[in-house]
Design a protein around this nucleic acid. Structure first.
Lengths: 212, 212
DNA sequence: TCCGGACCTCAACCGCTGGTCGAGGGTTGA
DNA sequence: TCAACCCTCGACCAGCGGTTGAGGTCCGGA
């Protein structure tokens, strides 16, 4: 889970997350044995904290105030949230993900739960499934499906439809193939690390191509 | 002179002004005997510094950069509140470059500087270039090149060589193509937003494929 | 001409923020 | 059983944004 954020914020460490918790910026649930368990909402919150810090140079004290204001249903005074994908389309408060309180793979959503959590139309979800951008496992969808669906919805606002996004799926599959090959189909932390590397490389390449 | 600013910013002191001068944020002229002589322009500049600090929580380092940019004619900066961070040549919303403190387009590195900054061998750099993972613009490389090179080096520790990474380049190019097509080759913050979406989608897909 | 007060420089010091480190110990999965 | 995680808690640390103080200069007024 740490890897998820590390892909996007290279300098996040466990110790930093612990510190942020101690400062009251995030309050992850705990497993029975006391391990931190970050929900999708926690990760969203951390994403906000880290990007506010990095992109707006806000001190943690101020970020904390903003989070408090947002929790109480207000909007922060300075600008908006630097990265807050969840408040663009759909429901303002992502009702689905919070009550399940688990991250990525542990989340099991029905189709309708997914649709509501992502705030998309049945038609868009159909399309996403037909292009294999969102795939059910058994009868359920995981937390990543929400993220994919939400992002696709944002793309749609620019006129980019699911079929335009197929190359993303292909690229992701190829990268996963590469990783699995190297790891001989093990599934451990090293695998996560490689995946984080892949995402980071990808981000850097997109950026460098774009600014050319 | 000092009183003028004190009316507006209660906590400005002589010692603070001296400090700001030492930090290179303002450069008042001197009388023959060495006393500081603040011109109207100096006071304006200080007003900018103090309000950026107080109202936007910007660190002096960043304010200094902004002043530098304004000095080089990038912004008029006549009175009024400091420009929003997003209007300035600041960090774009894309992940990746934070650890360098400088961002893609602004950085100009020689080949050797790049190599040292990324901590890689000449051979690896050769390989990266031959696969177009790192590309020079003119005679220079940008900050993203460092990130790409470093990440490639980490991949190399898993036995994944530059040639295995070509699909990343291809995927990135395709995505940039998609974005540029939609944006009709404009280059503004909407473009950055789309790029951020692309990176996020990619990350989510890799994750969901991997945890399957 | 001498005094007091405001200014100068330079180095040392300081408090706060934003973390990191390490000791000592529990948990998990192969 | 062992490696590789995770936990807490307290000590420690670096950098930022100044302040303080020692030692000296400048200037206006009695």
């Amino acid at each position: 889970m740490l890897r998820i954020l590390q892909a996007e914020f290279a300098d996040v460490t466990i110790s930093k997350l612990r510190f942020l918790e101690a400062e009251g910026l995030v309050a992850p649930a705990r497993t029975a044995s006391g391990y931190r368990k970050f929900s999708a909402a926690d990760i969203e919150r951390l994403r906000y904290v880290l990007s506010a810090q990095r992109d707006q140079y806000l001190p943690l004290r101020v970020i904390k105030e903003h989070l408090g204001a947002m929790d109480r249903g207000l909007r922060p005074a300075i600008g908006g949230p630097p990265v807050a994908p969840s408040d663009l389309p759909g429901p303002p408060e992502l009702p689905g993900a919070e009550e399940f309180g688990v991250y990525g793979t542990e989340l099991k959503l029905t189709r309708e739960e997914l649709r509501v959590a992502a705030g998309i139309s049945p038609e868009l979800l159909d399309e996403l499934e037909s292009h294999h951008l969102v795939v059910a496992r058994g009868n359920h969808y995981d937390g990543d499906a929400i993220l994919v669906a939400k992002t696709a919805a944002e793309f749609a606002q620019y006129g980019i439809e699911p079929r335009h996004l197929r190359p993303f799926r292909t690229a992701a599959d190829r990268e996963v193939g590469l990783i699995e090959q190297v790891m001989s189909h093990r599934r451990d932390d090293k695998t996560q690390e490689l995946a984080a590397l892949a995402v980071r490389l990808h981000a850097a390449l997109v950026r460098s191509r774009l600014t050319r």
